[in-house]
């Protein structure tokens, strides 16, 4: 049960990291290229800590590479938000900001987990996430409250992605049991704080708050969007073509 929870936490960081790594060498400016790949590296580092811990609870005794890189698609438990395509810089920033606000709240709560190793991972990761949030939030403000074009692009990205964050606050059956035991975070309790923070940012960035309340769901159950297969094809290629290959 803890194993599944750890994979779920790790998969979110892993897939978002993979998405951001696609921008390596393609950022809008050299400085942003480095900033985004830095965040990508932070996230893969956080995923590694979680995968390494998960290997201790795996019945099949797989190593971290096997957990990260050779599972079939329906065993990945990341939310749909993180697999959404980059599209343009506005989409990259909005996706990142929506996720950073969640990641920050989730790790802030996970610091108090009764599982000591998980709490230690959260404490270490939280420092990185605070910076990610600062970075993406500043870009929300800068582009939202920028030119007419940048405002429009940000608004389009927000409207496109608005249906995805809701899934972050869904509780699986395993999460409910683990949350009661004080190990996992009850993510459903984070939604109000997330909303408050995001609405404040949108307001400050002079961006409109979409009206929709319906949200996409599936990723946490292993049912992914059409993008996931393409991500995995690229991400898993090396380990599948050359099993157990290392650097």
């Amino acid at each position: 049960m803890l194993f599944k929870y750890l994979l779920q936490l790790a998969d979110n960081q892993l897939i978002l990291s993979q998405r951001l790594s696609e921008l390596c060498g393609h950022g809008p400016a050299l400085e942003q290229d480095i900033a985004i790949t830095n965040i990508s590296l932070d996230l893969i580092g956080q995923a590694r800590l979680l995968f390494q811990y998960a290997t201790k609870h795996d019945d099949q005794k797989r190593n971290e590479d096997q957990l990260a890189l050779v599972r079939p698609e329906n065993e990945y438990r990341n939310v749909l938000l993180v697999e959404q395509p980059n599209v343009d810089f506005a989409h990259v920033i909005v996706r990142q900001y929506f996720y950073d606000e969640f990641n920050f709240l989730n790790y802030s709560a996970l610091v108090n987990s009764k599982d000591e190793e998980l709490a230690a991972i959260a404490t270490k990761s939280l420092m990185e996430v605070k910076y990610h949030l600062r970075f993406s939030r500043n870009w929300m403000l800068r582009l939202g409250d920028g030119t007419a074009i940048s405002n429009q692009k940000m608004q389009d990205a927000i409207d496109d992605l608005w249906a995805y964050p809701g899934e972050l606050f869904e509780m699986t059956a395993d999460e409910q049991v683990l949350a009661k035991a004080g190990v996992a975070v009850d993510v459903s309790t984070l939604q109000e704080n997330w909303k408050e923070a995001v609405l404040a940012t949108l307001q400050e960035a002079t961006l409109a708050i979409p009206e929709g309340t319906w949200h996409q769901t599936g990723g946490k159950k292993g049912i992914h969007s059409e993008y996931m297969g393409h991500i995995l094809a690229e991400m898993q290629f090396l380990q599948r073509a050359y099993p157990n290959q290392t650097w």
């Binding site: 480095i34 500043n138 800068r142």
Partner: peptide, 13 residues
């Protein structure tokens, strides 16, 4: 573009 971005870029670069 601005001082805040310059600090963040400097941190990353």
């Amino acid at each position: 573009a601005d001082s805040e971005m310059a600090l963040e870029n400097a941190r990353d670069v």
